[in-house]
Nucleic acid binder design. Structure first.
Length: 310
DNA sequence: CGAGTTTGACCAGCGC
DNA sequence: GCGCTGGTCAAACTCG
């Protein structure tokens, strides 16, 4: 049960899937590599409004995953300040989540895309009306969204956690707004959004069809407010009551079970840690034996220090 | 009674 | 153009 396909017994190889693997350059580089991921992860997560702390023990980390860039042309390409993210609005920027780097004009770091028609995304670009998350909320309900008005994706990241609980505590409060059966998976996918009315962060939770003990959580967007509570004393809350309530549970998840980051970094993020990342999971989780070239291509661009691709 | 969940329907995007 | 699928809505329902 503890064994994961992504990590060999020696703990020196990380696999995103059967098509690609990461091999540490040397034993000494293990912790460095872990630190690399978590330093970056903390940075990245903080961009999303989370302050995930680094685990105490590197061996708790079981694997790092892949990401899908298939939708890059639609979701990235300078659209972090897209229409949906505008609703962070006036509330924004408590702790800087919604402002600052969050509104970093990603367009300045051009994101390579496999889709040559990425330029078409310019039609989606809000013409500088909003400054990142400082704009006004979308006034048109998506249900009444006009035809041709594309759904703007926010940057995403996902991670996998070995847990029997579907909905992991992360210090924020979530409201479930949908559940849907997923193709090729016996487990439904649940859709959550942050209960903060000014926050548009969404979260998808599903179980891996390959390993039902693994929960795949995908966050989309950035919180524009503090969390209610935070693991291991790193409380941001102004409400001690809540803080005390959440701390122990979350700590257990993040540090006893470890956080499995299932993510990717857009090539541009290797140049600027200020940039949020976009992680897209595939429409259907890849079969163990199936290969998604798009993953491979992207992973090839991301080689953490001390690691080499095999 | 308010907040959260469930669930069927609707819509948009994508691939063929 | 059509069908499939993911994502979202919203009414009904449950719970505290």
């Amino acid at each position: 049960m503890e064994d994961k396909k992504g990590l060999d017994p020696a703990g020196t190889e990380f696999k995103s899937d059967s098509s690609s693997s990461w091999t540490l350059a040397g034993p000494d580089s293990v912790s460095d590599s872990i630190n690399y991921f978590f330093d970056r992860e903390s940075s990245i997560l903080s961009e999303f409004g989370w302050n995930i702390l680094q685990p105490d023990h590197a061996d708790e980390i079981e694997s790092f995953g892949e990401l899908d860039r298939t939708d890059a042309s639609r979701g990235l390409a300078g659209n972090f300040s897209g229409s949906q993210s505008q609703s962070c609005g006036a509330a924004g920027g408590v702790g800087g989540s919604c402002s600052g780097a969050a509104s970093n004009p990603v367009g300045s770091a051009e994101v390579p895309t496999s889709n040559p028609s990425v330029s078409s995304s310019s039609s989606e670009d809000p013409p500088e009306k909003s400054t990142g998350f400082g704009g006004k909320p979308p006034e048109i309900p998506s249900r009444v969204r006009k035809k041709g008005q594309k759904r703007i994706r926010q940057p995403r990241f996902a991670f996998m956690t070995k847990s029997e609980v579907d909905h992991l505590e992360d210090g924020y409060r979530w409201r479930k707004y949908g559940q849907k059966a997923v193709k090729n998976s016996p487990f439904p996918r649940s859709y959550y959004r942050c209960t903060n009315s000014k926050c548009t962060v969404k979260k998808r939770v599903e179980r891996s069809s390959e390993d039902p003990t693994i929960v795949i959580t995908t966050y989309e967007g950035q919180h524009c407010h503090h969390s209610v509570g935070f693991p291991r004393g790193g409380l941001i809350s102004h409400e001690p009551a809540f803080a005390g309530q959440f701390t122990p549970r979350v700590s257990q998840f993040y540090y006893s079970q470890g956080v499995q980051l299932h993510r990717g970094i857009s090539p541009s993020t290797t140049q600027s840690q200020q940039l949020p990342i976009e992680v897209r999971e595939s429409r259907a989780l890849p079969e163990p034996t199936s290969q998604l070239p798009k993953y491979e291509g992207l992973l090839g661009d991301i080689v953490p220090p001390g690691m080499r691709k095999t």
